[in-house]
């Protein structure tokens, strides 16, 4: 079969970036533009870049869906993700006593950050309620414990101080923002996402 549409992975990414209400219509519009206009004009490789660029233009909207607190959560998750990956890497390279447990904790935090980012930015249908409460409590506990231990120790480390505060902030933001239903998805609960069959007949959303 000769598949002349945009790359499947890019279409998958676009659909995950869109709210359920827009998933079918927007993906259809971009596919139509790609097939009818862009690919014949500039060729497949550049058309793929065009498609990916437009996919990314929806990421900003996803990031801003949770309002200022949602954006702060994404920012803190990114900071913590980078720091925990760095810490895990250093532990593995330096191999001081007890490095295995510290590496495991750093990787666990990184996994929580990745899951948070996926749940917030991509509509992957993650059943948030199953994991975000214990994950948020774990982050707050770990951040607070690190902060207190650092405050009591003879050598105060600024890096640990900042990271522990970011961890506590991230945990609190998760508790505040993650339980909420996405506003744009909520609109579609009653109407349902436009399905192929439903779209066969012209209907009004209002």
């Amino acid at each position: 079969m000769n598949f002349s549409g945009p790359p499947r992975w890019a279409e998958f990414l676009l659909e995950r970036l869109l709210a359920a209400r827009d998933r079918e219509t927007v993906a259809g519009d971009l596919r139509e533009e790609y097939v009818e206009s862009i690919m014949p004009r500039i060729g497949r490789p550049r058309a793929d870049v065009w498609y990916f660029r437009h996919c990314l233009s929806f990421a900003r909207r996803c990031a801003s869906e949770g309002g200022p607190m949602g954006r702060l959560l994404i920012f803190s998750s990114l900071v913590t993700l980078i720091c925990s990956c760095w810490l895990a890497l250093m532990e593995l390279l330096l191999r001081h006593a007890g490095f295995a447990s510290r590496t495991a904790v750093a990787l666990l935090i990184a996994a929580i950050c990745v899951a948070t980012l996926l749940a917030r930015m991509l509509h992957l249908g993650v059943r948030r309620e199953r994991w975000f409460w214990p994950a948020a409590v774990a982050l707050i506990w770990f951040g607070a414990a690190s902060f207190l231990r650092n405050a009591r120790s003879a050598h105060f480390e600024g890096f640990v101080f900042v990271i522990s505060l970011v961890l506590v902030l991230q945990g609190l933001l998760m508790l505040v923002t993650m339980g909420r239903t996405n506003g744009r998805d909520r609109l579609t609960i009653g109407a349902g996402a436009p399905s192929g069959e439903a779209a066969d007949s012209i209907r009004s959303d209002r």
């Binding site: 827009d22 079918e24 259809g28 596919r31 139509e32 439903a198 007949s201 012209i202 009004s204 209002r206």
Partner: peptide, 18 residues
């Protein structure tokens, strides 16, 4: 603005238009 859904075409992979 108001919107309505309409039938998709083959080139859109059958996806609806708004």
């Amino acid at each position: 603005i108001d919107s309505r859904l309409a039938k998709g075409t083959a080139i859109r992979g059958g996806r609806a238009r708004r």
